[in-house]
Design a binder for these strands. Structure first.
Lengths: 249, 249
DNA sequence: CGACGTGTTGAAGGAGCTCAATCTAAGTGG
DNA sequence: CCACTTAGATTGAGCTCCTTCAACACGTCG
């Protein structure tokens, strides 16, 4: 491990390294990316729909979400992001942001000039492949979310979200899938699952009543992971955690 | 135009060229990709969830869709694809397919070995950028679909789908947004919008009754595009049709 | 202390679902 | 050319999951 864990870019090196094996030169090149570090309060906009940002951004600490507002005023939360996630890789290529990215909690964000990202991607193929891979996994998660809100009932949707968040936290080394802090209001959960906050409340209470979870404020304790995964129709393949680029056949 | 329009890969050159300007060497490199052309009947699987395909595939003619089956037996159609779309770019990097790709009509598909795709992507940065761009646009469309099924009512969802399909057909030079053939059953439309076929039927009939569309079998004639777009809460930004990589600031 | 954001609960209503019947058009085989 | 089949579209009736609206509880923070 040549990456200094104090370095704001270290989580990025870690993440990219999971996708594609990086040699020390690759790692150094990533760590050499120019960036501006900024601390934002909860609810701040990191990217606004319609912006033409000159930077991509990396989530260095805290949690964020992607979001879109539709014509009738409804809001759909599209994805959740945590430390090490590149919340806006697309801005290195696409010109106009097609959705909003907002801070869920207080966050630290590293803004990296798009030109630097592009140069790195094509200058060091392993890094480029890892970034592309990251984009593809994002797409896979988005498909799962489409299926989640499109074809699952309320209980299943909620349980699925709880599973995904737990697994991803654990994978990022940020917590335990069976005991974590979910930094979202029930209204935000509603916007993530395509429900209303009232119904989210009833659904969560039912999971508690059935002894599948045991919540306390925002703290989620999963009493029976297997049952939660079953109720949530959850299977982690879509997160592509195992099959790195170079995985043996 | 050095690309021969008879060449199965020509639509790919066209599409990538829209995203990122390609010089003649780039175009030749794309056309030089090795591939196997196959004709498949409607309903055939092009990729199956869980497969570890050794090829990416390009839709040379016909229509296809991505699809996922959830625990309760429900099916969610995740995306629609037409001539020139790379229906499986992700398989060049991801190992395991996370969803199914199926032929909607009779299709011709070119299977391109993943190694060749990777080599091209990193050997010719303009092409690689165009491919990455394509991936990003796919992601954007997927987000819109998530919002569509998550936060819009039945009428809006259907109208939105009709708008998207029309615009994309037109953009691909395959038809007129106000008069086209939608090669889907109402059950498939239901799976795409997260509704039931019965409700899709009532919704479509209401659009006809309101003189917004005028359908005849699978033929869709849009009587009033502006009203359809309004009812469908449709705005084409998420398709990123205008803002190519090299677009002037 | 009062105000605000969030969670919790109840009651009533509705958008969309389920089930099931009927209709239509396009085969298909004799 | 016609009887038969079949996939898909259309329609009706009843039901349910989730929404809406509204009230109340609770903790935090100025």
């Amino acid at each position: 491990m040549s990456s200094n864990s104090q370095d704001p870019l270290a989580p990025l090196v870690r993440k990219l390294g999971l996708w594609s094996p990086l040699d020390s030169q690759d790692e150094e090149a990533v760590l050499a990316l120019p960036y501006t570090l900024r601390t934002l309060t909860a609810h701040s906009y990191i990217v606004r729909e319609g912006d033409n940002p000159e930077s991509s951004c990396l989530l260095v600490s805290g949690f964020a979400y992607r979001q879109k507002v539709v014509g009738n005023g409804g809001r759909q939360i599209l994805a959740l992001h945590m430390k090490g996630d590149i919340v806006d890789l697309q801005n290195s290529l696409l010109r106009t942001a097609d959705h909003n990215v907002q801070a869920l909690t207080k966050v630290e964000v590293a803004f990296i000039p798009r030109e630097a990202v592009k140069k790195l991607a094509f200058g060091r193929p392993s890094v480029g492949m890892a970034m592309w891979y990251d984009t593809l996994v994002d797409g896979s998660v988005q498909r799962e979310w489409t299926a989640n809100v499109g074809r699952r009932d309320a209980t299943t949707r909620m349980a699925h979200l709880l599973c995904e968040f737990g697994i991803r936290l654990e994978d990022a080394g940020l917590g335990d899938r069976c005991d974590y802090e979910l930094p979202m209001t029930q209204e935000q959960l509603a916007d993530a699952t395509g429900l209303t906050s009232v119904h989210v409340n009833r659904t969560l209470m039912a999971l508690d009543r059935d002894k599948i979870t045991d919540r306390n404020k925002r703290a989620v304790r999963v009493v029976d992971w297997n049952r939660l995964a079953e109720v949530g129709d959850f299977s982690s393949e879509y997160l592509h955690l195992q099959d790195e680029v170079a995985a043996p056949r």
